[in-house]
Simulated assay, not measured.
Amino acid sequence: MTERRDELAGNLAKVERRIAAACEAAGRKREEVTLIVVTKTYPASDVRILSELGVRHVAENRDQDAAPKAAACADLPLSWHFVGQLQTNKVRSVVGYAHTVQSVDRSRLVTALSKEAVRQERELGCLIQVALDAGVSGRGERGGVSPDGVEELAALVAGAPGLRLDGLMTVAPLTGEYAGRQQAAFERLMELSTSVRGAHPAATMVSAGMSADLEQAVAAGATHVRVGTAVLGVRPRLG
């Protein structure tokens, strides 16, 4: 356990230096960027160590892994973010532990989240997931709504009981016009964020950037970066 703690502490320190350097290069204050550690596939024991090391935001993408882990770590001062594609049949479970759902991408999901948040008497933070690779279907490969649908969905979230519109999220696309152009993708997300804030001034959160491209996200103006591998190591393959 001591060995794992030392490993995580060293990795966190490296990521912290990267974020600090990226902020300095962008002329931003370090406190403008929040680190979310993506703990998917890693055990609750790692989450506990991260909490001891000062991490306050963790993210998961599969409810079947996240629910027991969140329950095992319920005593810790953590904010849990759900970042995966969310099926409506998992909404009841996710609303039970998540503070923020970053992957809101369709009206049916908004309705389900709202109904369950009201039932559980919780206020749930929501980010609209933007698919910058959206095809004719209006959805991206990894979920998300097309840029054209962002404002309509944002208004739906903002007006839904039990939900709070916090901002926007994206994953750098692997295909389409932004493939290999992470900073351009994140700058497009910032344009959309500015537009959404015109109608919803409190929706200031912009979640973008992961282990490989957090610098580009910070340069573009992201307020939150989601880092997994650079903190926890290369993930074990899921069977």
Rank of each mutant, 00 (worst) to 15 (best):
T2F: 02
T2L: 00
T2Y: 00
E3W: 04
R4E: 03
D6S: 05
L12I: 01
A25N: 02
G27T: 00
G27K: 01
R30N: 10
E32L: 03
T34N: 03
T34Y: 02
I36T: 09
I36N: 04
V38S: 06
Y42C: 03
D46I: 08
V47P: 01
V47K: 01
R48Q: 13
E52Q: 14
L53C: 07
G54I: 02
V58F: 11
E60K: 08
A67R: 15
K69H: 05
A70I: 09
A74E: 12
D75H: 15
L76S: 08
L78M: 06
L78D: 04
W80H: 10
W80L: 08
H81N: 12
G84I: 13
Q85Y: 02
Q87C: 03
V91W: 11
R92D: 12
G96L: 08
A98Y: 05
A98N: 07
Q102A: 12
S103R: 05
R108I: 13
R108L: 15
L109C: 14
A112V: 11
K115Q: 15
A117S: 15
R122F: 10
R122D: 10
L124S: 05
G125L: 04
G125S: 09
L127T: 08
Q129Y: 12
Q129D: 08
A131C: 06
D133K: 12
A134H: 06
R139A: 10
G144C: 02
V145S: 05
D148N: 11
E152Y: 07
E152N: 14
L153S: 00
L153A: 01
L153G: 00
V157K: 11
G159R: 15
G159V: 06
R164V: 13
G167L: 06
G167P: 01
V171G: 13
A172D: 11
L174N: 14
L174Y: 09
T175C: 04
G176D: 04
E177H: 15
E177Y: 11
Y178A: 14
A179W: 01
G180N: 07
A185H: 03
R188N: 08
E191P: 03
L192A: 00
S195Q: 09
A199P: 00
H200M: 06
P201L: 03
A202K: 10
S207L: 07
A208E: 02
G209A: 01
M210S: 09
S211P: 12
A212C: 01
V218K: 00
V218D: 00
A219V: 02
A220W: 03
G221A: 12
A222W: 04
R226S: 14
G228E: 13
T229W: 14
V231D: 13
L232K: 09
P236M: 13
P236L: 11
